[in-house]
Write a protein that binds this DNA or RNA. Structure first.
Lengths: 232, 232
DNA sequence: ACAAAAGTGTTGAGAGTACACCCATGC
DNA sequence: GCATGGGTGTACTCTCAACACTTTTGT
């Protein structure tokens, strides 16, 4: 039944609204993204960014969080709305407007380890991406660009690491995502000067070499944007 | 009739998708935004950002451009998607997801001058904003923040000026939007070093004082992002 | 003792900022 | 000739980038 109320369009003339969540994680010295293999046409057999339709009783942000939890079992991680994709023919079956999000999940917090549950879900290195369904290559490209950009002038890098981490781990995270080598002394000076992390007082106990100080980020400063770029 | 195809939600369970366009222009030494007075409940009598529902045969960008043309008669101006607002109760009548855009229009190109056609449409200075309907205050706040941010590290400032402009006009535009005074010599040096504008060879002929060189922006560099902030 | 990773300062270059006077035109 | 806005250069400060050795631990 049509629900036209004289102000909003009758329901037959409404597009479907989906959320797609680009889920990044860092492991094996590489940035990875979670993809799902499509079992049905169109684009059968191609990989796609996890997503689904928004329910009427949830906000967009809630829909994104729900999708993220469904795919990774993770809640309370850094999530940010990316862009809304609304070309007419982006889904060949019907009109779908898709609100894309990206999420940064520490690998240690993921309950679905690679290939553990559904065979059709897998982490892919950004260096060896398969062909993607729909306009998902474009979405992923956009997400990666945004992630790099964010890292350059904010301190979201923490969000890819466990609660406590060493400065070397953090530097490695930045190097992997930005795909460039950073100077150790300059990195430490800058990240400490930014005032967004603090010593825990504890040190790493295992591993080779000298034990390293463990840091944590200060909760209040996580999303705070720095006035100057950290890594221009 | 419901259109459930087994893959996307039946139409009764789809939100309406709207686009709202925050239209900025610069005149009378002030930044202004175009607002529309609501004639019907809810929020009757309050001002709102121009917007409307997307049609199924147009993309989101096209819907935004259409809205912009309807309100100002202007096409081909700088338009950028801002954010998508999707709280459950943002519209008390029904579920509406709104994709917000912002546009920069040179005042000289506007065919609807203030109050010329519909009484219910008017330009408002950002210094004296009325109460707004729905979550439009939030949208406007977000748009202004984004505009300022863009001006700080790109050269979109031109988009608020006519095709040809003087450096003083451009500086005034930046000063108004950023709401701070800039040094004349430093401004000129930076904006010229950025290489995004060029002399036309012509000079202003009317007005008091010494005639000023007219500049235009180089088309290809309009949207190009500078690596360094222009005005940090 | 040696391998492996952690930690630590200084110097030079370039960018950013502050600042004041002369120039061309209209009235 | 004076009022109005246009146009120009320099010195100082500070941030950024480059660079190498010592320390602590495990084996």
């Amino acid at each position: 039944m049509s629900v036209g109320n004289g102000y909003s369009p009758p329901t037959e003339e409404r597009p479907a609204v989906a959320v797609d969540v680009v889920i990044f994680s860092l492991f094996e010295n590489d940035l990875h993204v979670l993809l799902i293999k499509r079992k049905t046409p169109p684009f059968q057999g191609l990989w796609a960014i996890p997503g689904g339709f928004m329910n009427l009783d949830e906000s967009l942000d809630e829909a994104a969080a729900r999708k993220l939890a469904e795919e990774t079992g993770v809640t309370e991680v850094y999530t940010e709305q990316l862009y809304t994709f609304g070309s007419v023919a982006r889904d060949p079956r019907s009109r779908v407007v898709s609100v894309a999000y990206f999420a940064l999940v520490p690998f240690s917090s993921i309950s679905h380890q690679p290939g553990e549950f559904e065979e059709a879900t897998a982490w892919h290195s950004l260096k060896t991406l398969p062909q993607l369904a729909f306009d998902h290559s474009e979405i992923l490209e956009y997400a990666l660009q945004r992630l790099r950009y964010k890292l350059e002038y904010t301190a979201v890098g923490f969000q890819l690491l466990p609660d406590q981490f060493t400065l070397s781990q953090l530097q490695r995270a930045y190097e992997i995502v930005l795909d460039e080598k950073l100077d150790k002394r300059n990195f430490r000076r800058k990240i400490l000067a930014a005032g967004v992390i603090e010593e825990t007082g504890r040190r790493t106990s295992e591993g080779e070499g000298r034990p390293a100080m463990l840091y944590r980020y200060k909760d209040d400063s996580v999303t705070e944007v720095k006035t100057r770029r950290l890594f221009p």
